[in-house]
Amino acid sequence: MRGIRMINPLGLIGGILAISIFLSSTFYGEFWWEMRIGEDIGHIKVSALNYEIELLGSFMEIKILWFIILVFRMLLIESAIALIICSIAPGKNFSDKLLNFAYLKPLLILLTFIVFLLILLLLLPLIAFRVSLPILGSSIIPIRLDSARIDALITSRFTNSFWIMIATTLTYLSAHIYHNKIIRHK
């Protein structure tokens, strides 16, 4: 293997995946989870990097979410840059510190997103309307409005971007293990 510069391939893949998730969420409106209300009556589309809530042609805005999303976007892009740098030069003194700075961030972003989703779907509707919304699959939710009773068909699913984010998180963790077990001992 002499002459071949040592790199951490898992770190490179993880970094590129993280940048692609950042770009697809920020510029192409990709979300990790979506809930559709009826047949195009409204939708909730969320990820840790953006959100869109629409009902009957009107969009919902929650200002604090934009600032939280900004935090997650910056954390993800910082971690990706750090991981790529330390993967290109794993033997350098700074690579350990860059790796330690980067490798847990996607996991924290993912866990925060899942906790937020559970609060959004299970806790808030249960407190406000005594109903719980499906995280996955379809169900009919009864709602009272003025004198009318309404049955709303709700369909939820995780998108491909969510599974790519999980793969990215696992790649980050694998890159950390690869760095500690293999590169350090060479």
């Binding site: 009902l55 969009f59 919902m60 805005e61 929650i62 200002k63 604090i64 939280i68 900004l70």
Partner: peptide
């Protein structure tokens, strides 16, 4: 970003946290 948001909306924090929809 969180501190910035709290400073900008310090006069009316409900604007920051309450969902807004014109519907």
């Amino acid at each position: 970003p969180i501190c910035y948001a709290l400073i900008v909306y310090r006069e009316d924090l409900s604007t920051l946290f309450m969902p807004r929809i014109e519907l």
